[in-house]
Each structure stands twice: as C-alpha cells, then as structure tokens.
C-alpha cells in the first residue's frame, strides 16, 4: 500500500463516508451513514454520487413497503484508495507530533512536563 493523498477522498465529508464504510460493516444504510457522519441527506446524496462515479462506492437501492432504502458499501478500489489516504494522513499526524515534540524539547513551557501525552487508537484496519 502506498501512502498518498487521494483527490476524491480528501474532502472531509467524503473521507467520513469512506472511513465509515470501511469500518467493518458489509453494507451501511443511508440513515445510519448520515447520522454517524453527522451530515444532511442532501450532502450525503451529492457526495455519494461523486464516490459512486469514481468507482469507490457501490450503491444498492430497494424499498421496505413504501419506504425507499439505500445501502452503500465500499468497493475494493475505494478501500485501497482510502488505505493509501489514511496512511498519508497518519504520516502527517506523525510529522506534526514529531515537530511539536521537537518544539517542546527546545522550549519547554511551564507546566508542560506534567501533561500526559495522548495516544490515539490506530485508524488503519487490518483487512
């Protein structure tokens, strides 16, 4: 996997959509994705079309009774692009942490020594 930014995934809304679809569910329903991403119906519709056209997301439409239901899933291409983008973001995160560390070591501020360093959980999946 090559760590590189992906222009389709870079906008934060599309990163959220792809990141959520890659979290482990096979298919995710429209409302679940919208609520988890914290975006509106129209934004999700618009951005999912862009991702579908790019071949990153597969869309399945159906209905339960009269209520339409739309399900999304990440394609293999989408998963690969997301992994590369997340790896690039993780490198960025590491670079920012390192530069912050260097700055603090060079110029420790009063009280900084007692601050615990926050360790973030990994974002990259094992699949």
């Amino acid at each position: 996997m090559t760590a590189k930014p992906d222009p389709f995934i870079h906008p934060i809304t599309r990163l959220s959509i792809c990141g959520l679809l890659a979290a482990g569910a096979d298919w995710v329903e429209f409302a679940a994705l919208r609520d988890a991403a914290g975006i509106s119906d129209s934004v999700l519709s618009k951005q999912s079309v862009v991702l579908e056209d790019a071949g990153y997301v597969q869309v399945r439409k159906g209905a339960v009774g009269r209520r339409p239901r739309t399900w999304f899933r990440l394609t293999a291409d989408g998963r690969q692009a997301l992994q590369g983008h997340l790896a690039w973001l993780a490198q960025l995160e590491e670079a920012v942490s390192a530069s912050t560390r260097d700055l603090q070591q060079a110029r420790p501020l009063p009280g900084d020594r007692d601050q615990p360093r926050r360790v973030l959980p990994p974002l990259l999946g094992s699949s």
């Binding site: 934060i12 990141g19 959520l20 988890a36 914290g38 973001l89 973030l120």
Partner: peptide
Amino acid sequence: EPLERLRAQRSRL
C-alpha cells in the same frame, strides 16, 4: 482534525 473526526464518527456508528 479529519482523523479525530473519523474516530468519533466510527464510535457513533
């Protein structure tokens, strides 16, 4: 910010 945000969104999901 995107990484932090994605972590929170995955937690919500």
